[in-house]
Design a protein around this nucleic acid. Structure first.
Lengths: 123, 123
DNA sequence: AATGCTACCAGGAACTACTCCCAATAAATG
DNA sequence: CATTTATTGGGAGTAGTTCCTGGTAGCATT
């Protein structure tokens, strides 16, 4: 656990606004001004591999990162791009359903939402 | 409806293997050898806007296109990248559930699957 | 038929979000 | 303390897509 890796993790523990790699980079650079973007990307990959952080991928948007690893869902605002958490209980196991219907071994189910956040709706 | 736009649509009506823009381009070029990639992209956008085709977006992968617009789901093979259709009945309206829990106006629900196709599993 | 208008075109440059490479440095191990 | 191993910063490269420029096609109005 190098200073760089720790700084990346700290940033994600401190802020829960689902920053992009670039945003993490800008925040880490305040602590370690010489850090490189490649290092941030590398450490985000390593931390995700170790399940210390979660990767949030919305198509056509930069990846976002989240230090909260317990399962929950995300919604992205189509206007401002903000990503927020959604907590849902008792979501049926749709992956199992798919597994039964076909020839696929189902490895993951991706469930995400798009909408307009209250702030953008107010405008 | 120019010849180029018609050719793009024809390609998607003829093949249902969820081609990428690049694959559409290669197929259109057999009919219209001078067509440009930008034109294919533009017409895919226009056709999607008009709901004549559907866009399939898996994060980190090129977009794929589908002339079948009635709602169905997709699964991508993590090994070969092939995208296949999944037909599911009676999927609960998770978007409505989310709408009730929070401040968001839910505009779309994205439900996709990842797995290993039978062909890759056989190897 | 000439003019203006709009939509569309090809080709290439530009852009974004990564990803890869490499020499230099730091950490871990014996 | 020496050496192996992991990690670093910086810069170049990449894939997929978008943007820009100048030009053309089709159509309505004169």
């Amino acid at each position: 656990m190098t200073a760089q890796r720790k700084a990346v993790l700290d940033v994600l523990h401190r802020w829960h606004d689902h920053p992009t790699a670039d945003e993490v980079f800008l925040r880490v650079r305040k602590l370690l001004p010489k850090v490189s973007l490649a290092t941030v990307y590398r450490n985000l990959d390593v931390l995700a591999e170790q399940d210390e952080i979660q990767v949030i991928e919305f198509p056509g948007q930069p990846r976002r990162y989240d230090a909260v690893t317990r399962p929950h869902y995300h919604i992205v605002c189509v206007e401002c791009g903000r990503v927020e958490d959604i907590h849902l209980d008792r979501v049926p196991d749709l992956g199992a359903l798919v597994q039964r219907t076909g020839a696929y071994e189902v490895l993951a189910t991706r469930l995400e939402f798009e909408g307009r956040c209250s702030r953008c709706r107010a405008r």
